[in-house]
Amino acid sequence: MSLAIRTSGLTKTYGEHRALDSVDLEVEEGSIFGFLGPNGAGKTTLLRMLTGLARPTSGVVQILGHDVTAVDDSIRARIGFLPDVPGFYDWMTAEEFLRFVGRLFSIDRRTLDDRVGMLLGLAGLTDVTTAIGGYSRGMKQRLGVAQALINAPELLLLDEPTSALDPMGRRDVLDMLTSLRGRTTVFFSTHILADVERVCDTVAILDRGRVVAHGPIQELTSRYAERKVILEVTDAAGDLAQDISREPWAASVAVGPTGALEITVTDMDAARLAIPVLVAGRHTGLCRMDAGELGLEDVFVSLVGGGAR
């Protein structure tokens, strides 16, 4: 397995504040990787270190097999980057800006002509001849995605690429990212879970500077689903919930909108043995007992939504 990104023990502190805390991350080449986390979790800090804009306090950060802190500027010829709030020269037009960026990559004129035309079309800016200063935030975001692709990068780093887009714009960008699967490694940070579920193979969830979950989406949802039991009984659900809440393996019990009990368990084996006994003890009928299916949102909320923020 070759890795597009690898970080090991990556830590970044600002005075007493630990923005990133020993982050270990591996992103396979060709994958679409979603980097999830609430605001202030450290997503942008990590991207700044991946791009060499900031230096780690400690740890290793590698891109395409090269240590970012040791390598010269040439590694950046192989990556594309869109910051969370891209800054443009307001006096340029979109075409001028793309040509300017292309020249920074030393792209020959003929190739640049082709790519500029194609990317203006992708960004929906082909017929826009006004200066960037008059663009809406969505137009700037689309131009930002286009400039990140001007060099046909091996690795595309995007910080919140869909946050300023309307639903159509979001769909277009996500479709574009999907079309890159297998050819370009895409690493994008976001807090929009639906985007991640739609296009990503693998995700990492960051909370307060630490990676709290990392792996393929299916694996994450099934791993955390095992901790939740959905229970349906014929009657006395409230009494049964009280019985269950007193058990040492029950972290929480809630009655769902359909009357089913949603039980978060700390010991699945103990729960499987005890729940039927408790149901029988209440002389009620057992209709359904299974592990609940969690979506990525449930996983995200359970991992980062519990603590006081």
Partner: peptide
């Protein structure tokens, strides 16, 4: 001014020293 506006970030994440 380029640091404040964010243009320096876009330029310096390209192969520009």
């Amino acid at each position: 001014s380029e640091r404040r506006s964010g243009t320096a970030v876009l330029v310096l994440t390209k192969p520009v020293s």
